[in-house]
Design a protein around this nucleic acid. Structure first.
Lengths: 106, 106
DNA sequence: TAGCTATATATCGGGTGCCGATGTATCCTC
DNA sequence: GAGGATACATCGGCACCCGATATATAGCTA
């Protein structure tokens, strides 16, 4: 799983959100580091919905702008958990290796 | 950075290795989870060498089979460290979110 | 000796997912 | 009325991965 996809799932933990709000939440969660480009966002939402990680929760129209809310499904929650575990483990390996073979300077 | 690339850099921390040995080390480091396909491996080695993350250390011929050893360069070491940090942080966010909004039962 | 596995590298075609650009539409502010 | 924020959709191109295929040596075994 790539980072944009991960942050989409992450943003949906706890509450259903519409696409644009997902992008904003991803940005705030990541301290501004992760910007979901429009093509990435809507493409990923469609893909994730088709494969059952997320589902359309409801649609609204606010001030003439339609909003499509997505919710995290069980499958998506599991995928997020698995990915978090995978990254955590990989990160530990990297940090340990870099520690053990650090640039030795006294 | 994708997982295969990450594990290639990781495998090279501490000692130069040739392509095939990198694939074996990636597999053992990841407890068998990460298998570097040939196309991935040699493609990535070429790419990483071209962009300065790794460099050809030396070439040997053992039993008629040639081996090309790669070493991790400073840039690759930094990239690995940055990636480990990124993954660690993303993993923490995911685990925290899943904890806070866990499937409430009891 | 023929076949399989392991070692070792190279290349090609296809697929996935990301991204920037572009388009549509509404609303608010200056 | 121009620009920016909100909101979604689509398209082309790119990066990277992956399986398949190829080449070559060596060891084991049936």
């Amino acid at each position: 799983m790539r980072e944009p996809t991960y942050f989409i799932l992450l943003a949906l933990v706890g509450e259903p959100l519409h696409g644009y709000a997902i992008a904003q939440k991803a940005k705030s969660l990541s301290d501004g580091r992760v910007t979901l480009a429009a093509g990435t966002l809507y493409g990923a939402l469609e893909r994730l919905a088709a494969s059952g990680e997320i589902a359309v929760d409801r649609e609204e129209a606010v001030d003439g702008r339609k909003r499509r809310y997505y919710r995290l499904d069980e499958s998506g929650r599991n995928a997020l958990a698995a990915e978090a575990k995978r990254m955590s483990s990989a990160a530990r390996l990297g940090q340990k290796a870099l520690r053990n073979f650090g640039t030795a300077q006294a």
